[in-house]
Design a binder for these strands. Structure first.
Ligand SMILES: Nc1ncnc2c1ncn2[C@@H]1O[C@H](COP(=O)(O)OP(=O)(O)OP(=O)(O)O)[C@@H](O)[C@H]1O
Length: 742
DNA sequence: TGAGCTGGTTTTTTT
DNA sequence: AACCAGCTCA
């Protein structure tokens, strides 16, 4: 500890600027750090936590740091572990949601809701969709949109804000659906993501004694990325720290940057950060100006873009970083070329793979890049997208587990009653729902027995249902003593789940699913070895988890792939921003909603993730919904002065020429080992173009079909057939002699 | 009931 | 291209 203290004190004295030092070393009071990207806000938070522990003897357990995304929480834990590697009791570093989940679980008795589970977005959508359908309103409402309306509606309701104008056409049906959705969640004992925050808020409001008792242990609170808190989170923070406008804890410290506010669509409110100082009287405001992350050239690009936002306070990032490297703006012919160029660039990089990130606006863009990386044998790590616990096979098995513990869980019940198929389909479901609705507080077993007693089921169905019941008889009896992995195995065997996979999915897909299940079993076994709490603890622990924690994860160096949203708060030596095109960034929807400023902030966040090298790319053509569309470069690119980037067109390059070019860009030197590289990078695949000069991804012209891109060149007999994606005429196979290279 | 077919739709972003 | 809701047929 002492050794850590000494090195930390040196750190404070040499690695923090005077402003940061104030925010780090002051013990009590309220602090607000407003500063641009890469100016050391997160460093303030992590150093502040460490300083409280090492120099003020604060109990780590009384420190709470809240973040917005899981990734940000992980990053912060990681940074603190660097200062305090062998801290036994760790400060709480969690997302708002995780913090609330833990609080509610721990104090479930106060809510007379013992075993609630968290419903994820997909299930919530499914549930709402089924309600909409039941009421015959599918023409009027879209479940996904409606859920986000519900979210706003509930926020106004709970916080008793002025009701927004619900000038929607079908207000009555809206309310009806809302109530039905809330009721269904209640019956099944589910909370959705928003509920985690609301229920905590209401628990604090309605039970002040509990609040006081619980909050007594919180002495220091820190919030990262405050610009992205929504009203309920803001309200929660105030509950946790203020009473009669006076601080009830020792310190509160919020950091943020209005230019990085990118979550307005989920209710984030920049006003929260602007009002912080008024709400917390005596707040010490700290401004950080210098950027320590990026080269000045990268910051120039960032500054030139963000200054086009009208709604902001002027701020200019600067750095005295002596390193220099010119950002590259790359125009590609197609999304395919973009992906393969990136893969090849990465292969030329000497850098550790984990210090490279590929960032995109939407998840679906990752797919084509992923394929290119696989082809180039580059290890990668994808963050977000469909997580492990969102996979069908895992959710199915989880439903079996949940149903053992919570016999009121309708969502799980209907998920698995006919999966694997056992002849209890739609009709059966309907009968079952009706009976259940007549006896809403019965367990599914009670309803099932009632149904069997009515003797109206076909013999086959009755047998099926009886069998289904027995799966759970066995499981339930010993659920607490039994190991999770045994219960899991029990269900897999009883339901013949593996056979179901083989029968109902393509070979490769079934194999993948089986592997996931094996992985899941391993995770369960690992849990059993390290915990006593059995199934209920297991389910609680994974309720907000996204991915399995794999041991070999840090062993191999991997390129990072993630959306711009999940990249917030992170940094990488090399950042590759792809798809800078109208409709992608800014997204089509944002253009329609006139919310382009948020997209610009998103771009700004992306640019400012880079420490040394920045590559921005866009394509002229892109596959959208299965057909090739012409794309226009993003409007944001026009905001970057020509002198700030090296603008390079790659459309007509041959593979060897960009190897040379990339090598020069990476090293920052002209005519590096040009020759050697071109030999290395000439792969047989590209040279095998038979006797035509048409290559993959080359643009070609046809007399009647016009312009297009060659996607495949094959020899058929003595002819060469080229698969061309035409700009206006779809995909066609054309003999090469009818095509002209352009 | 469940498999297979058809035709319409799809893609923001996270907890 | 991939997915789903809705339909038909065994
Ligand atoms: N005073 C300092 N001296 C040198 N390096 C610093 C200093 N403060 C921060 N850094 C470094 O600068 C980089 C950016 O810091 P940090 O991640 O804390 O910034 P941030 O303000 O949280 O950025 P963002 O808002 O973009 O997430 C980090 O690599 C950090 O280690």
């Amino acid at each position: 500890m002492l050794q850590h203290k000494q090195s930390f004190d040196t750190f404070v004295n040499t690695q923090l600027n005077p402003q940061q030092k104030i925010a780090v070393t002051a013990k009590d009071g309220s602090f607000l750090v407003i500063a641009g990207a890469g100016s050391g806000k997160t460093r303030v938070i992590t150093a502040r936590i460490t300083n409280l522990i090492l120099n003020h003897q604060v109990q780590p357990s009384s420190i709470i740091a809240l973040t917005f995304t899981n990734k940000a929480a992980q990053e912060m834990q990681h940074r603190i572990a660097q200062f305090l590697p062998d801290l036994r009791i760790k400060p709480t570093i969690a997302t708002f949601h995780a913090y609330c989940l833990k609080l509610l679980k721990k104090n479930a008795y106060l809510q007379n809701a013992a075993q609630f589970s968290v419903i994820d977005a997909a299930d919530a959508q499914k549930l709402l969709q089924s309600i909409i359908k039941e009421k015959g309103l599918e023409k009027l409402f879209n479940a996904k949109q409606l859920l986000s309306f519900f979210s706003t509606f509930k926020m106004n309701d709970v916080l008793k804000l002025d009701a927004p104008a619900w000038n929607m056409h079908h207000a009555q049906q809206f309310t009806e659906l809302y109530n039905a959705y809330e009721q269904q969640k209640k019956l099944s004992n589910y909370l959705d993501f928003d509920d985690l925050l609301y229920n905590t808020f209401e628990l604090f409001t309605k039970n002040p004694e509990f609040a006081t008792q619980h909050l007594k242990n919180h002495r220091h609170l820190l919030v990262d990325e405050y610009q992205d808190t929504n009203l309920i989170q803001h309200a929660l923070l105030k509950q946790m720290t203020l009473q009669n406008k006076k601080l009830t804890i020792d310190s509160v410290c919020a950091v943020g940057d209005e230019d990085q506010s990118i979550y307005s669509w989920r209710g984030a409110n920049v006003a929260n950060i602007l009002e912080f100082a008024t709400e917390f009287a005596g707040t010490k405001k700290i401004k950080l100006e210098q950027n320590y992350r990026s080269t000045q050239q990268i910051l120039n690009v960032a500054n030139s873009v963000i200054k086009h936002n009208v709604n902001r306070n002027h701020k200019e990032l600067w750095s005295d970083n002596p390193k220099k490297h010119e950002p590259l703006l790359l125009e590609c012919l197609s999304d395919l070329q973009e992906a393969s160029l990136i893969a090849q660039l990465i292969n030329l990089c000497k850098e550790a793979k984990s210090s490279i990130a590929i960032l995109y606006r939407t998840h679906y863009q990752s797919r084509i890049i992923e394929e290119a990386l696989i082809k180039a044998s580059i290890a990668y790590k994808m963050i977000g997208g469909i997580s492990f616990y969102e996979r069908k096979e895992i959710k199915d098995l989880l439903a079996y587990l949940r149903l053992t513990l919570n016999p009121h869980d309708r969502i799980s019940f209907f998920r698995i009653i006919n999966c694997p198929a056992r002849g209890l389909g739609e009709k059966f479901e309907e009968t079952f729902v009706n009976l259940w609705n007549q006896n809403p507080f019965s367990t599914w077993q009670e309803v099932a027995k009632m149904l069997l007693e009515q003797k109206q089921l076909a013999q086959k169905q009755a047998t099926s249902l009886e069998q289904f019941l027995t799966f759970f008889d066995v499981a339930k009896k010993e659920k607490d003593q039994k190991k999770v992995c045994e219960i899991l195995n029990h269900f897999i065997k009883q339901t013949n789940y593996l056979t179901y996979l083989t029968d109902h999915f393509e070979k490769i897909e079934a194999e993948e699913k089986r592997e996931n299940i094996a992985e899941f079993l391993r995770a369960a076994a690992y849990f059993d070895e390290n915990n006593q709490g059995g199934l209920s603890q297991f389910l609680d622990e994974i309720s907000l988890m996204q991915d399995l924690i794999k041991q070999d994860d840090s062993a191999t160096e991997r390129v990072n792939m993630m959306t711009l949203h999940s990249a917030k708060g992170l940094e990488f030596n090399i950042v590759i921003l792809v798809g800078l095109e109208e409709g992608l960034l800014p997204s089509n929807q944002s253009i329609g909603q006139e919310n382009v400023e948020e997209e610009r902030r998103l771009f700004y966040v992306g640019i400012t993730r880079a420490r040394e090298k920045l590559l921005i790319s866009y394509s002229k053509y892109r596959n959208v919904f299965g057909k090739l569309d012409e794309q226009r470069p993003s409007r944001f690119l026009r905001e970057i002065p020509a002198s700030a980037v090296l603008h390079q067109e790659a459309a007509h390059w041959s593979k060897t020429s960009f190897a040379t070019f990339f090598q020069e860009w990476i090293t920052g030197e002209k005519n590096a080992t040009t020759q050697k590289i071109s030999i290395v990078s000439t792969t047989p695949e590209t040279t095998s173009t038979f006797s035509t000069n048409i290559k993959r991804l080359q643009s070609v012209k046809h007399a009647t079909f016009g312009l297009g891109i060659a996607h495949q060149v094959e020899q058929k007999g003595d002819k060469i057939v080229v698969t061309v994606h035409f700009t206006h005429h779809g995909t066609k196979k054309i003999e090469s002699s009818f095509l002209q290279v352009v």
